[in-house]
Design a protein around this nucleic acid. Structure first.
Length: 933
RNA sequence: GGGCGAAUAGCUCAGCUGGUUAGAGCGCCUGUCUUACACACAGGAUGUCGGGGGUUCGAAUCCCUCUUCGCCCACCA
């Protein structure tokens, strides 16, 4: 079905153009195109109040997916959450910017292109740096950003006119500016130390990029004979025997009495027959292994520190590829059969040799953490090298305070502790990568000048030295991808241009939505950059959502093959079904469980809901059609029927609850107060209340209640139509952020729709000002109760659905009149005729006591077996007695009446009276029917 | 090793500051093609709220402890 084209006069639905099954495939793409063409998602910076406009701004920055990525369910989840918030804010009347973009993803993209080259039998070295970068650029230009197109299919209402890219000229300028500023502040330095190195990607990695994985390894105990006294030896324990070729000492704890006498003496390094000293250092833990630790400064970060403290040499025996060799200061340390071996093969050989020479004392299984490259999973090798580092401690301080003082909140709150712990123990960030794909380190070296003039960080490319005029060369390294990502909230808005309109209009933004995995990689660093460069946090809320998992609780991933393709879901059930299912199934921070093997079941919730919504629209249009409808605003309160009053009250309640679930737009006073700090962002609660309203209140009750009125021409018909259209319009608004497509499709067909207007840019509903409770609304509750009660009784006694029965009502005159007026409604929905009596007739009967003491009596003569009814009454009476006894005991308890809040006690008293009445009724019936108990 | 979190219906989970008879979706059972919807309607069943102890008039909710899972951090070679 196409929503465009058809003039209003023809919008009266026929079964042909309005099938019972909603067909998202025929609807969604066209709607999205119209939104985009109409500029619904384009933010107008000039309207931001911050630069003199008429609206409060609202901003969300899309976590940029890798430029080579294709959409997976994690993206779907992440972007759906953002889209719900953004659409909500937009409807709330804020000038809303959702800024999309991609990340050039240094290692990841380089790996992809290298794989392509490998398929052609080439390496990056065959091409050379320049050509390789050209090729990668071409690859990105050709295939990159597919994911942004895919995001449109799930309805993402991002401002595509502002799409950013971390490697664009603008953002590259920001990267360089940030680097130079930090360099000038002395916060970036060149460090010579042991860092994480990936021997496959041939680059260094930050601590965060080297992921620890628990591994079952072996702890080898090796005996090192004491020099000059071959009868004695000490035993060291290591998991990496191959590094012993680089040993320069063994360390014991200075307080360890076992080895005190040996400190200052030497031991002989097996295999090499090298004399190395025994040193005392606190690093050695007497309780671990043998208490002796071998020191290999070039191949272990801790050993490096020990070596530095004791001025030890740093022989390098493993090269950049993870192959054994005398790389640096290691002359004679790598004997022939070992040289040229891969590190793991070398381990085997060395262990074998130690075994042969009797030096291997013991092998014991040992599980420990081994770090792996986060991009290619290769075991990371600690490597001594020169890298660029950012001093983090000064940057961390304001970012830590920002969270502690409530400028920023992190939800769910359990992550606050994790954040604080990381921030207080923060270590310097290795930002240089030995890659070709990325922002080149903006540092130039002059061969002629003396330090410190020979090293220059510059905003502009340099060719000659500004000091001496000789040619300069640029640093070969590129920057960590995250060094551009951490500037995202600023760089995408135009930083460092101070006069950037977007920056002034939208910084700081509002909510950052992402997965907890990148809390340190990205979120914490963005906060630090925000304070460092803008003097303020980049957002006030961090929403960390869960992960999509399969039925075995495994994270969905490409490598496990247990993923769900969101586009597949969109194609089968529609984007709305995908979105609704994800939102409804996701508590704050909780994981979403989906079954990749049974999409039908996984997405039934969303699909069914979209269909239900569709059918309500279908009902409305079949009844109201193209006829003119009275404006709801023109309907006087006195014209409203009880059902109208009731549904309007439910609508107000739904709006309030949805608003409360989504929460405050931002902190009321700029800083989160204790009571609002955890408020909102409960999107599942919002979805649930909205669903309840539409399904359980509008569809199940209101629609059923007004069917007769809609079919009966007259003034009341017009009232019913007006209320129905109004209520459904409001419901569509309420649901639009979650199910944008079907809601828009239906909204466009509402009788009063003005051509060219969109639900996406219409206003969010507001509850009516709360007034005194409408008595007629609560009267409708009683009618509902009666119908419910009748349905239960009918079902319990297996009365055939078609059979009309009669019930007697004992009620006060007020209620009697109300029920009399609603007779046809009750009789239609409960298939029961009501007769009014002063007291219950004799004979077997079912009865129910309702609000206001109204008693409903259904004679069962001819319908049931008396013995059975006696049993049933007895059981019911029994359980009532029990519950009543407990209730009475509670009310007799002086502690309860004294300490419980008054309204609780009052409620209990009322309940006691109701139950006592009910007990009396049941007893009378029982005695009348079955004799004395 | 340190820190944090979770355990509620067959499954996935709500249940916020302790207070009517603990809820939803999916699944299951019974009935129904009731003129919007069988992707529906009406009704129904199922819970010692992980075990134990404590605080309280009152505990799924607060405290302690145990068990089992999960997450984060950490240089124990």
């Amino acid at each position: 079905m196409s929503i465009s084209g058809a003039p209003q006069s023809e919008s009266l639905a026929t079964p042909d153009d309005f099938p019972a099954q909603y067909d998202p495939a025929a609807t969604e793409a066209a709607i999205y195109e119209r939104w985009e063409q109409a500029g619904c998602f384009t933010a107008d910076a000039s309207r931001s109040r911050r630069i003199g406009g008429d609206r409060d701004p609202y901003g969300i920055l899309m976590p940029p997916p890798n430029v080579t990525a294709i959409l997976h369910v994690g993206h779907g989840l992440n972007n759906t959450v953002q889209d719900v918030l953004v659409r909500w804010a937009r409807m709330k009347g804020l000038e809303t910017l959702w800024l999309p973009g991609t990340d050039h993803a240094g290692i990841a993209t380089q790996n992809v292109v290298e794989k392509q080259l490998a398929a052609e039998g080439l390496t990056r070295d065959d091409l050379g740096r320049e050509k390789f970068v050209e090729r990668t650029k071409a690859f990105v230009a050709e295939t990159g950003g597919v994911i942004l197109q895919q995001l449109r299919a799930i309805g993402a209402s991002a401002d595509w006119t502002r799409t950013a890219y971390t490697f664009s000229p603008e953002l590259s300028g920001a990267v360089r500016e940030a680097f130079v500023r930090l360099y000038e502040r002395g916060l970036i330095y060149r460090g010579h130390r042991v860092i994480h190195w990936c021997p496959r990607c041939l680059t260094s990695l930050s601590d965060e990029e080297a992921e620890p994985k628990e591994t079952a390894g072996t702890l080898y105990h090796i005996s090192y004979p004491v020099a000059d006294d071959p009868t004695r030896s000490i035993t060291v324990a290591t998991t990496r025997p191959e590094t012993m070729l680089g040993d320069v000492a063994v360390a014991v704890n200075p307080s360890d009495e076992r080895y005190m006498a040996l400190v200052g003496k030497h031991v002989v390094l097996p295999l090499l027959n090298l004399r190395i000293p025994v040193i005392a250092d606190d690093y050695a833990d007497p309780a671990f292994g043998t208490g002796v630790v071998k020191i290999t400064p070039a191949h272990d970060a801790n050993d490096f520190e020990v070596g530095r403290r004791h001025s030890l040499p740093t022989p390098v025996v493993i090269d950049e590829h993870g192959v054994m060799g005398e790389v640096e200061d290691a002359s004679g340390r790598v004997p022939d059969p070992i040289r040229g071996l891969d590190r793991f093969d070398a381990r085997q050989l060395i262990v074998a040799r130690l075994e042969d020479s009797g030096r291997l004392v013991k092998k014991e299984p040992h599980t420990h953490n081994v770090r792996h490259c986060y991009r290619c999973d290769t075991v990371v090798e600690p490597r001594l090298s020169d890298q660029w580092f950012v001093r983090m401690q000064t940057l961390a301080h304001p970012a830590l305070e920002g969270v502690r003082q409530g400028r920023i909140r992190i939800l769910p709150e359990k992550w606050v502790g994790v954040y604080e712990h990381w921030m207080t123990n923060i270590r310097d960030w290795n930002i240089s990568r030995q890659l070709w794909w990325g922002h080149r380190v903006p540092v130039w070296y002059c061969q002629t000048c003396e330090p410190p003039n020979n090293v220059m960080a510059s905003r502009e490319d340099l060719t000659v030295c500004p000091h001496c005029g000789s040619p300069v060369v640029q640093d070969d390294d590129v920057l960590d991808t995250w060094f551009s990502s951490w500037l995202w909230p600023m760089s995408t808005l135009g930083w460092p241009r101070d006069n950037s309109t977007d920056l002034r209009a939208f910084y700081p933004t509002d909510v950052l939505v992402t997965a907890p995995e990148i809390l340190f990689f990205w979120v914490a660093r963005m906060i630090m950059a925000g304070y460092a460069f803008m003097g303020d946090a980049p957002f006030h809320s961090v929403y960390l959502h869960g992960t999509a998992r399969d039925t075995q609780n495994r994270k969905m991933s490409k490598s496990l093959g247990n993923g769900i393709d969101p586009l597949d879901v969109v194609q089968r059930y529609g984007a709305d079904a995908l979105r609704y299912t994800l939102i409804a199934g996701m508590g704050l921070g909780a994981d979403v469980m989906l079954d990749p093997a049974d999409l039908d079941k996984s997405f039934a919730t969303g699909r069914n809901f979209a269909t239900k919504l569709w059918n309500i629209g279908r009902f409305l249009l079949m009844n109201v059609g193209g006829d003119s409808v009275r404006r709801f605003e023109d309907v006087a309160p006195s014209e409203l029927a009880r059902a109208d009053a009731w549904i309007l009250e439910r609508l107000d309640d739904a709006i309030r609850k949805c608003d409360r679930a989504i929460g405050p737009l931002r902190p009321a006073r700029g800083v989160w107060l204790e009571e609002e700090r955890v408020a909102g962002l409960r999107l599942n609660e919002y979805a649930e209340r909205a669903r309840q309203f539409v399904w359980n209140e509008v569809a199940d009750w209101y629609l059923e209640a007004i069917k007769t009125r809609l079919l009966t021409p007259g003034a009341d018909q017009q009232v019913a139509r007006a209320v129905l259209v109004h209520v459904f319009d409001q419901a569509l608004r309420l649901l639009h952020p979650i199910v944008p497509f079907v809601s828009e499709a239906l909204w466009q067909r509402l009788p009063a729709h003005v051509d060219g207007t969109f639900l996406a840019t219409s206003s969010w509903p507001a509850p009516r000002p709360s007034t005194v409770a409408d008595a007629r609304a609560s009267q409708f509750e009683l009618i509902k109760d009666i119908i419910d009660a009748m349905r239960r009784i009918r079902s319990e006694y297996a009365i055939p659905p078609g059979k009309m029965i009669e019930a007697f009502v004992v009620a006060t005159p007020d209620w009697r009149q109300i029920l009399d007026e609603e007779f046809s409604l009750i009789s239609r929905l409960a298939r029961t005729a009501l007769a009014f009596v002063e007291w219950a007739p004799a004979g077997p009967a079912a009865n129910v006591v309702l609000a206001g003491g109204t008693e409903l009596i259904v004679p069962l003569t001819g319908l049931i077996d008396v013995t059975k009814e006696c049993d049933r009454l007895k059981t019911e009476l029994g359980s009532l007695e029990k519950q009543l006894a407990a209730l009475e005991a509670r009310l007799d308890n002086p502690g309860f009446t004294a300490r419980a809040p008054a309204h609780v006690v009052e409620a209990e008293r009322i309940k006691r009276e109701e139950w006592r009445t009910r007990r009396g009724v049941l007893r009378t019936r029982y005695e009348g029917l079955c004799g004395k108990a």
